[in-house]
């Protein structure tokens, strides 16, 4: 049986991890490669690297990082943050990224999804969608959630799937950072309406939230950052608990 995936997300700035990292036995908490290795050893199913730097050097730094990560770990990883062209995607995949995550650029130029899927295959194209509820309607937001659009979450999700996206990473801005659980109603509706895998993001606070998002939310994978980085939830323990709840999980 295909298992549900647990995905730690690392925020990267100028080639270094940011946000609190609170692991024991880390020589260098800012080194993304060492962190990636630790998560792989803990049986994380995948990793996501999100580049939040805004320097001109960004592309090269990110490509170098991808190469180092690919050399160090033997589980799949996705890279996102500011990817806006077929060339951007090509460089990251050539350096060893398994998937790329595209967000704002796909909204601005939806044809980019078709082009990337045709050139590299749907399997490596993840479309990240940030959305929040406005007047009871889920609206897509851009630029890390700062810029609202008129796009409806579910319409956009269907469109990206149709254009060849292989997976959707849905972050609920209403839930992100609250530690109150994932946006399970919206996630379940996405799974019902779109026939590609859905990664739940935003709101993880305790182990039960993961149970809920895999059952009530029908999510295929769950992503979290700080609760893993601060060691509030340890991945081996989380996976054991999920297994005890009869959720298909890789131990």
């Amino acid at each position: 049986m295909l298992t549900k995936r647990i995905i730690p997300c690392l925020d990267i700035k100028d080639g270094r991890t940011v946000k609190g990292i609170n692991f024991v036995n880390l020589r260098d908490a800012g080194d993304p490669v060492e962190l990636a290795r630790q998560y792989a050893d803990q049986n994380a199913d995948e990793l996501v690297f999100l580049d939040i730097s805004a320097t001109e050097q960004k592309r090269k730094t990110l490509a170098d990082l991808v190469l180092k990560v690919a050399a160090a770990i033997d589980i799949p990883f996705t890279v996102g943050g500011g990817i806006s062209s077929v060339d951007d995607v090509a460089i990251l995949l050539q350096n060893g990224a398994d998937k790329v995550s595209i967000n704002s650029a796909a909204v601005k130029n939806p044809e980019l999804i078709n082009e990337c899927a045709a050139q590299f295959g749907s399997q490596c194209i993840v479309i990240a969608i940030d959305a929040k509820k406005i007047n009871n309607q889920w609206k897509v937001h851009l630029v890390g959630g700062k810029v609202p659009t008129e796009l409806d979450l579910f319409d956009w999700a269907k469109e990206v799937a149709q254009r060849g996206a292989g997976e959707i990473l849905f972050t609920s801005m209403d839930h992100d950072g609250t530690k109150g659980g994932f946006a399970n109603a919206a996630l379940a509706r996405l799974s019902d309406e779109v026939n590609i895998p859905i990664i739940a993001s935003g709101g993880a606070g305790d182990i039960n939230h993961f149970v809920d998002t895999f059952t009530l939310g029908k999510a295929d994978a769950a992503l979290a950052a700080s609760i893993f980085h601060f060691g509030e939830i340890l991945i081996p323990e989380l996976k054991q608990k999920l297994k005890q709840q009869d959720i298909a999980i890789r131990i």
Binding site: L2, T3, G166, N195, P197, D220
Partner: peptide, 29 residues
């Protein structure tokens, strides 16, 4: 859901390619 994406259990026959790999091991697909 298509594509299948993630870790799935495999069961195998006794061949050299799978030597010392556990029955019901997970592989990434």
């Amino acid at each position: 859901k298509v594509p299948q994406m993630g870790w799935n259990k495999i069961s195998k026959t006794q061949t050299a390619l799978f030597q010392s790999i556990n029955e019901d091991e997970f592989m990434y697909l």
